[in-house]
């Protein structure tokens, strides 16, 4: 009995986590898609169509997974001939951009 209860409990936990994972994949995909639109609107002019840069401007696909603080800092404040986006992009849009860039990153 106990055994059976345990098995049921295990099943419920597994099912819940699978559903959770699915939900977060769907959420991530939505963010990636939204990020692509934000990118095309504000960034592609300098960083290249579909994130493909010939190397004369910073290649955003180079950003490693742990570079989110640097990313946000540079995007909000600007750097060199990169304009600041504070006041133009919401934190949601920056989050979407990050997801889109990471989804296309050279090293995942």
């Amino acid at each position: 009995m106990l055994d059976r209860m345990l098995r049921v409990a295990a099943f419920v936990i597994i099912a819940a986590s699978v559903m959770g994972a699915q939900r977060s994949v769907a959420e991530d995909n939505a963010k990636i898609a939204a990020g692509e639109t934000v990118y095309n609107t504000y960034c592609a002019t300098c960083h290249g169509d579909n994130l493909v840069s010939s190397g004369q401007t910073f290649d955003l696909r180079k950003l490693p997974a742990d570079a989110r603080p640097r990313f946000e800092n540079s995007v909000l404040k600007g750097k060199g001939q990169m304009p600041p986006w504070q006041g133009v992009l919401s934190s949601d849009e920056i989050d979407q951009l990050w997801h889109y860039i990471r989804d296309n990153a050279h090293e995942k």
Binding site: H47, G48, D49, S53, S54, Q56, T57
Partner: peptide, 18 residues
């Protein structure tokens, strides 16, 4: 001095790292 719209956007593989 490379730059301008094509160099920045096209993703032309011939121009990588010019």
């Amino acid at each position: 001095g490379i730059g301008g719209v094509y160099a920045l956007r096209s993703g032309d593989p011939n121009l990588v790292n010019v």
